[in-house]
Simulated scan of single mutants.
Amino acid sequence: MIASSKRSPLTYLVHATVLFLVVIWTIPTAGLFVSSIRDKDQLSVSGWWTALSTSEQRIVDRANGPKTQTQEGDQFVIRGNLLTNSSAVITQFGFSSLDPEAFAAGTLAEMRNGQTLQVMANGDYALASPAQWKGSRGQRIFYTAEVPPRFTLDNYREVLSAEGLGQSFLNSLTVTIPATIIPILVAAFAAYALAWMRFPGRALLVAAVVGLLVVPLQMSLIPLLKSYNLIGEFFGVGSKTYVGIWLAHTGFGLPLAIYLLRNYIAGLPSEIIESARVDGASDFDIFRKIILPLSFPALASFAIFQFLWVWNDLLIAMVFLGNNEEHLVLTGQLRELLGSRGGNWEILTASAFITIIVPLCVFFSLQRYLVRGLLAGSVK
């Protein structure tokens, strides 16, 4: 009897759930990118999901000053244009904040003392008065404009050129790359020893590694910083150095790295290692020529987690590197932007998307090893 090839309803449910989670996690990233390339005026008045539709903006502007008036017959006229975007269209206007949409575009509006105001759909306006205009400031004009969607790279140009993210980007790379490589090197040796070498107390060390997985970062950060400062004073080394943050990230990342790699290495076929020992290979030769090549999925899995954690870290960077521009990492620079320019959303969205470019590249380049590395050693 031929077995049925139909998939069970549970399989479809799992696939639908995974697809739903992927969409939920992708939508914020897509929204962040769309917001980062939108015109700042449109971004401030409408959400990113309306980026492809015409937006309605209510704007207040000032006409040209009395110095620009010209006499046309018995009238003194001030002319100009309100629109910087030639494709926008004005639908309504007004000269009072109490009724900013009092007149349709093209209507001749009667003001005080015989003065008139006319605003056309293309933004051209004319202020006319039987007497000369006086004062130094122009008349306020309120208008509603329909603006078609506009996309620009000006936000990225402003961030990369004026906001100092270039140096902080290099600082983040300086912190992240060594803080990812060092724990991998240390954990790989430790994982091989705990998996295949026999020595007293091995089970206690494995239990200690598992116990360290649940130690909160905040609880151990202050003792670690005090110890590092004491060591730095003893050797005459300043506290605000990259070495300190490398060691801190290494210490916090080692328990997970050792646990993950040990489970993977312990699941490798014992026949390969025993055959190598029979052929006279030392533990170091086995580790270098057999274990490391076979453990690449687990190494890549941990590298993804460690890189993302270190790249997005702010707390440890602030504690060990401080807040000076010379060592300020990318997350710290974003915090400064949020504190000083919280209303400029176009700058924040562009800055935030720049920070996730590198983690996305790392994840997509190594993601095919992620599941294999995480599931290794979970089943026999």
Rank of each mutant, 00 (worst) to 15 (best):
Val23Ile: 11
Ser53Ala: 13
Ser55Glu: 06
Gln42Thr: 11
Leu21Phe: 08
Ser46Trp: 12
Ser55Gln: 11
Phe33Asn: 06
Trp48Phe: 11
Ser55Ala: 12
Thr17Lys: 02
Thr17Ile: 13
Leu21Pro: 01
Val45Leu: 12
Trp49Tyr: 15
Ser35Thr: 01
Ser36Val: 10
Gly31Lys: 02
Trp49Ala: 13
Thr29Met: 06
Pro28Tyr: 06
Ser36Leu: 08
Gly47Asn: 09
Glu56Thr: 15
Val18Arg: 09
Pro66Gly: 05
Asp41Trp: 10
Ser44Ile: 14
Leu21Tyr: 07
Thr26Gln: 00
Ser35Arg: 01
Val34Arg: 03
Pro28Lys: 03
Arg38Asp: 00
Ser46Pro: 11
Leu19Met: 15
Val45Ser: 11
Ile27Lys: 10
Pro66Ser: 08
Arg62Met: 08
Thr68Lys: 07
Phe20Glu: 02
Trp49Gln: 15
Leu21Ala: 13
Pro66Gln: 06
Val60Gly: 10
Thr54Gln: 03
Val34Gln: 04
Val34Tyr: 00
Thr29Ile: 06
Gly65Lys: 02
Leu32Gln: 10
Gly31His: 01
Ser55Asn: 11
Ser53Val: 13
Asp41Cys: 03
Pro66Cys: 08
Leu19Phe: 14
Thr29Phe: 00
Glu56Gly: 15
Ile27Ala: 09
Val18Asp: 11
Phe33Leu: 14
Ser36Glu: 04
Asp61Lys: 03
Thr29Ser: 00
Arg38Leu: 00
Phe20Trp: 10
Asp61Met: 07
Arg38His: 00
Ser55Cys: 08
Thr68His: 10
Asn64Phe: 03
Ile24Gln: 03
Thr68Ser: 13
Arg38Trp: 01
Ile24Glu: 09
Phe33Cys: 09
Asp41His: 09
Ile24His: 02
Leu21Val: 05
Asp39Ile: 01
Ile59Asp: 01
Trp49His: 14
Thr17Tyr: 10
Gly47Leu: 05
Ser35Asn: 04
Leu52Phe: 14
Thr29Tyr: 00
Trp25Phe: 14
Ser44His: 12
Arg62Thr: 10
Ser35Ala: 05
Val22Ala: 14
Trp25Lys: 04
Arg62Gln: 10
Ile24Thr: 02
Pro66His: 05
Thr17Asn: 07
Ala63Cys: 09
Thr26Asn: 00
Gln57Val: 11
Ala51Met: 11
Ile27Phe: 08
Val23Thr: 06
Val60Ser: 11
Thr29Ala: 03
Leu32Ala: 13
Ser36Asn: 03
Ser53Met: 08
Gly31Ile: 06
Arg38Gln: 06
Ala51Arg: 05
Ile27His: 09
Ala63Pro: 07
Ile59Thr: 05
Lys40Ser: 12
Lys40Ile: 12
Ala30His: 00
Asn64Asp: 09
Ser44Met: 12
Ala30Glu: 00
Ala63Gly: 09
Lys67Gln: 15
Phe20Lys: 07
Ile27Leu: 12
Thr26Cys: 00
Arg58His: 07
Ala16Ile: 02
Trp48Met: 03
Asp39Ser: 07
Ile27Glu: 05
Val23Trp: 04
Val18Ile: 15
Arg58Met: 04
Pro66Lys: 04
Thr68Pro: 14
Leu32Met: 15
Leu21Thr: 04
Phe33Gly: 03
Val60Trp: 04
Val22Lys: 10
Trp49Asp: 14
Val45Thr: 13
Arg58Leu: 05
Gln57Lys: 09
Leu19Ser: 14
Lys67Tyr: 13
Asp61Asn: 13
Val34Trp: 04
Asp39Met: 03
Asp61Phe: 01
Thr54Gly: 00
Asn64Ile: 05
Ile24Phe: 07
